[in-house]
């Protein structure tokens, strides 16, 4: 919070709920900045590629970020609580593999989806158990499970592929609602609203913020820190499961290398969205904007025939830049203050 508080101190009941925020204060918000950048990128894309504004292309563009954004919401909550989950992409691989196995065994779509979601929940619960109950560092735990989950996928699949998904399964990743927008888009909106409500409107969300800012104080205030953390890992597991359903349905096949390296993009989205990597602050709106931004950029670069691996350079730079830039500006600000 860089807003300077006025020196007007009021007493007791006269204290207003909210401080009048100046226009500058409103504009200086990270989310405002993101909106501007999104608009700019959109504009640049339309100039760079004549195909960009095509409705079908734009609808395709959404695929680029929706699945990642869904995980990013859950990971945002995990990061706000002061932990991290790097195993989300591996979780997708394992869930997708289990779905493939169930589909190959001849079951129908509901069972396939159920199996996928259950697997992802189990993975989340495993992380949550190790972090919240055993008390291990979430970084090392999720690095290990990242290797474990994808490893199981490799054991099951080796270098083979599952692609015997029933036709009805394709609805999730390839279907349209009211001929207007994609099923994925609908999922995205519903899930975004869900996470927005959860983080900003519920007691649970408030507890997540408190834990991220001051774990000890949270515990002393009667908040069940372990239980909240466990739930968060469950949630990020489940979000990976939903993403796995969408992605698998869209691709129509499962390889063990599915969603490789997504954890990086997800963490980048979260941090770009203004969530502090040290926990305690961030908003869902920021993550939504960041995901749209990254989707537009990757899509735009894709139209310009830039290969995917090169985009990861961009992602990596972005990740470091969004953390470094505020610190540099802070340094410059404090420096200029001193010289004044």
């Amino acid at each position: 919070m860089s807003i300077a508080f006025s020196n007007v101190r009021r007493r007791g009941a006269e204290i207003p709920n909210k401080l009048e925020m100046t226009m500058m204060g409103r504009l200086a918000r990270w989310e405002t900045l993101l909106v501007c950048v999104v608009a700019l990128v959109f504009f640049l894309n339309t100039i760079a590629s004549p195909y960009f504004l095509d409705v079908w292309n734009l609808s395709d563009a959404t695929y680029n970020f929706i699945e990642k954004a869904i995980i990013a919401f859950a990971v945002a909550l995990v990061i706000i609580s002061g932990e991290i989950d790097l195993s989300v992409a591996a979780n997708i691989a394992l869930s997708s593999t289990i779905m493939g196995a169930v589909a190959t065994a001849g079951y129908d779509t509901p069972i396939i989806v159920g199996a996928g979601l259950l697997t992802s929940l189990a993975c989340g619960a495993f992380n949550g158990f190790l972090v919240a109950k055993v008390g291990l560092h979430s970084i090392i735990v999720t690095i290990a499970t990242m290797s474990l989950f994808r490893g199981i996928s490799y054991i099951i699949l080796g270098d083979t592929v599952y692609k015997n998904y029933p036709d009805s399964f394709a609805w999730f990743g390839q279907g349209y609602l009211f001929d207007a927008f994609t099923v994925e888009m609908a999922f995205f909106i519903v899930i975004a609203v869900f996470f927005w409500m959860l983080l900003h409107k519920t007691v649970f969300g408030r507890q997540v913020y408190v834990i991220g800012n001051n774990k000890t104080c949270a515990a002393f205030s009667g908040i069940k820190v372990q239980r909240v953390k466990f739930s968060l890992f469950l949630l990020s597991g489940l979000a990976s499961g939903v993403a796995a359903v969408l992605l698998t349905s869209r691709l129509g096949s499962t390889r063990p290398s599915i969603a490789l390296g997504w954890e990086l993009e997800v963490v980048t989205m979260v941090v770009l969205g203004g969530v502090s990597i040290l926990g305690g602050s961030g908003t869902i709106l920021g993550v939504i904007l960041a995901s749209v931004l990254m989707g537009l950029v990757t899509f735009g670069l894709g139209l310009l025939n830039v290969p995917g691996i090169v985009m990861t350079i961009f992602t990596g730079c972005l990740l470091i830049a969004v953390i470094v830039l505020p610190r540099i500006t802070k340094l410059i600000m404090s420096h200029s203050k001193k010289t004044k």
């Binding site: 508080f5 007007v8 101190r9 009021r10 007493r11 007791g12 709920n17 909210k18 401080l19």
Partner: peptide, 9 residues
Amino acid sequence: DLRAAALDQ
């Protein structure tokens, strides 16, 4: 008898 500028401070 708290002294503050606003409750969201």
